[in-house]
Amino acid sequence: MKTLPDPLASPPLGLRPMRVHEAGGRGRRSFALFQAARHPGPLVWISPSHLPEQPLPAGLPMGVAERLHLLRPMGETDLLWCVEEALRSPAVALVIAEPQQPLSLTAGRRLQLAAEAGRTTGLLLIPEGGGSAASETRWHCEPAPGREDSTLHHWQINKNKRGTNGDWMLHWDGTTAAFHLVSEAGERQQPAKPAR
């Protein structure tokens, strides 16, 4: 039986275990790779066979390629079946999937039950407007590169069944699980000026 991290002790960008989460936006695959780097154990990435994009081992964060299993089902029905079966497996740490159509409440609930049964975490990379009411959290992820820094990301949690929403800017170079949160303007921790 795998040991689960304490969800209350997880960092602000962590995913609650035994639940299915969603990420949308142009940076959703970066968010998925970030989560893959932070989840120890076997990883399953499920995307439709017709999608030309797929994770390439040489470009993945350190330690992810060795643990990653790619599944390329032919249609949406097969994709959802693969997701459900992977979530039910207690050996899998994280299931990432790219459904192409919005999930019904029934399909979303089935995936949540599968995640609970397998004690596994799921992350669905959804197209715009493709979320399910059954998801635990929904993230909107965008790259935010500047002239001097291409590693900035803007990740927002827009739906959270068990907490508050949030908004983070972070530096993540995509090579390891390490990241740096960027302080909001005016909230940097600077020493106080001496009194005169």
Rank of each mutant, 00 (worst) to 15 (best):
A177S: 15
M18S: 13
L71S: 08
P12S: 01
G14R: 04
R38M: 02
M18E: 09
M74H: 04
E22V: 05
A65V: 02
A185V: 11
D6F: 05
A107F: 00
G24Y: 02
E22T: 08
A23D: 10
M18P: 04
G129I: 06
W139A: 07
M62P: 02
A107G: 01
V44M: 10
C82Q: 07
D149V: 11
A9R: 12
E187K: 05
A107L: 01
I46F: 11
E76P: 08
P73H: 11
P90Y: 01
K2T: 09
P17T: 02
P73I: 00
T106E: 12
L71G: 04
W155P: 07
L56I: 09
A144C: 03
A192R: 14
N160R: 02
V44K: 07
R29Y: 05
L71A: 11
H39F: 05
A93C: 01
H153L: 15
G174D: 10
R162Y: 11
N160W: 00
E187Y: 05
A144W: 01
L124M: 15
R38E: 05
A93S: 15
H69C: 13
A58N: 10
G27E: 00
L8T: 14
L125S: 02
T176Q: 07
P5C: 13
P191L: 14
H154F: 07
R16C: 10
P48A: 14
T121R: 08
N165C: 14
L70R: 03
R110V: 01
P61L: 12
L124G: 14
M1V: 11
L79V: 03
W155M: 13
A133W: 07
P73A: 01
A9I: 11
G130K: 07
E116M: 03
V64I: 06
P7Y: 07
R147P: 05
C141E: 09
T121I: 08
A58P: 06
I46C: 09
G129D: 08
S135W: 06
